[in-house]
Design a protein around this nucleic acid. Structure first.
Lengths: 329, 329
DNA sequence: CTGTTAGCGCGTTCAA
DNA sequence: TTGAACGCGCTAACAG
């Protein structure tokens, strides 16, 4: 393994000089800089990120904390996009990321997680879809030990940036389109879990829509679960005109319930996952670009780690109609 | 950040003694061991994995290399299971893993990847679903610089372990069951990509079945693509009795083609992904436990890194019938 | 059994 | 502008 020492020898300079060239310090003459760069090329030298991390504390790593509460396949697609988006950006920024799954921090206190992260040279954290009930992560955020970016949880402080689409407006938009298409009046709204931040934001969008269009609405918790949504639909959809769901998975559950009941009602979802296209009916949904969101999240946490200030980032969304034929082609 | 030095001071022993306790060396008296452990607890000390990695070369990290060639959602489920299985086992073994996506090594030569890995303290690699055409990764394996475990690619050498289910037998089993259920004679087999190792193994299973049961078989490439499988089915399924597919995704494509053609043929797939349950017909398929496979892969690579010898590992599989009702409940 | 010492590869003073 | 020297936190000989 070729180290900085050999590069220095090869270029006829000191180790520290090579280090300065590597890290773009200004006080190096063009001449020696070139010598060093040539040596680096010739030896195919790649700096040892481990050693660099150990030596300088500013070179922190980023932890990707994926939400503990999701299990179904539909969500796998979302997580993969989150992951790939984050990893691509991390490569671009030349920072290391550590993927943290629920099992790895289960049962730990905020202090234990803090120490665990510190011991891994982690100084920035991206948290995806944290729930309101997650007191541990919230404490972690509050203590500002790490630069944090929370996706879909509206928390901002000096070291915490919040990134999300406009949940309220998105829910408003997709429901409005669905309602107007069939001139519906009586809405069954299947909401997410009570402990999710997005749940109330989306519900707020629905409330506004109900007021604006003079609709009636029944709200039931669907817990982001396909089965629960199915049961809710079986029970309440019959004397409603439309079923609006706070997630694609619930929309699929509801739609399958309607098919079983042999009645038709327009249904709309939220997310834009591919699975949505496999249910045999076309449905409106919100498309979120999870890749871009995650990529941006890493960018933001990187800024925070370099002295930036926490703030809010609103990402764009769009309404799409999902149908199998459109996916397969 | 509390370091080993403070622990040593607190326990009234030397740094190296603490290190020995940490790494479970035998030559430490019970008494001092206890003192050290108490100090560790009291100070809430967590060892710095970065420093440990830098110091000892044997403490290498493991790279998870995910196959460059897959894009669809169905595969996300598989990859997530691979990932979670690997990360869980890594935590258990107390080794660090680095997730490598295609974009991160695209266009690099084997040498460049080698250097890149070395610079990241990577000494073990798990490769998922490598294709026959991937000369770069194959070279990486051949050079034996890293301990390698390849999932689904039959390559074994001193530093390379091959792990997979018995592809041939699995394909034989699931097709046999499907064929016998409806007493079929004429088989349309939609195979995978030509450059996939599993493709020929599964085809071999089919050839054996055809011989054993005295069937006729038409083989077409489906490229593991839903759309291609759909087109193949549209073209050839009519005067066949059964459609056997080398993946669930292709089975879904074929099934949807049959529905569009308004004819019924039994169809079977391979993988056991949840999406399979959403197509509206029940289908036989092979269930692979991707979590266990990946978990075992990390275990194997860890053994290789500690001086083990490459060998072959065959994981179990089972036949299941996938249907929506079974998934949702 | 325990402590001392020398690095791992690199960033970063501080003299020169 | 450059380089020698120190230290990051830890492991691994070695000496005691």
């Amino acid at each position: 393994m070729v180290s900085i020492k050999e590069v220095a020898k090869h270029a006829g300079v000191a180790i520290s000089t090579v280090s300065k060239v590597l890290n773009g310090y200004p006080n190096v003459s063009e001449e020696t800089k070139k010598k060093v760069q040539d040596a680096i090329k010739e030896l195919n030298y790649i700096p040892n990120s481990i050693a660099a991390a150990l030596s300088s504390k500013q070179f922190g790593r980023i932890a990707l904390v994926l939400d503990p509460n999701r299990q179904t396949q539909a969500i796998d697609q979302i997580f993969m996009q989150y992951l790939v988006g984050a990893l691509d950006k991390a490569k671009e920024l030349n920072v290391e990321v550590v993927t943290i799954f629920p099992s790895m921090i289960a049962g730990m206190t905020a202090e234990e997680i803090t120490r665990s992260f510190l011991s891994q040279s982690i100084s920035g954290v991206v948290i995806y879809g944290m729930s309101k009930e997650d007191k541990v992560l919230q404490k972690l955020i509050r203590e500002k030990q790490f630069a944090c970016v929370v996706v879909d949880a509206p928390i901002v402080n000096a070291r915490t940036t919040y990134i999300s689409i406009d949940q309220e407006q998105a829910q408003y938009d997709v429901a409005k389109k669905t309602v107007l298409d069939d001139n519906c009046k009586r809405v069954l709204y299947i909401a997410g879990r009570r402990d999710g931040y997005v749940t109330e934001q989306r519900l707020k969008g629905m409330r506004r829509l109900v007021k604006d269009l003079d609709l009636t609405m029944m709200v039931r918790q669907g817990d982001f679960s396909e089965l629960t949504a199915r049961n809710v639909a079986l029970k309440y959809a019959k004397n409603k005109d439309v079923v609006v769901c706070a997630s694609d998975l619930m929309a699929i559950g509801a739609m399958n319930a309607l098919i079983d009941m042999d009645i038709f009602r327009p249904v709309c979802g939220f997310d834009g996952i591919t699975l949505m296209g496999y249910v045999g009916k076309q449905m409106n949904t919100i498309r979120q670009d999870f890749y871009s969101i995650s990529s941006r999240a890493v960018e933001e946490v990187h800024q925070l780690m370099n002295g930036g200030e926490g703030h809010q980032v609103v990402m764009p969304h769009s309404i799409v109609k999902m149908y199998y034929k459109d996916i397969i082609c």
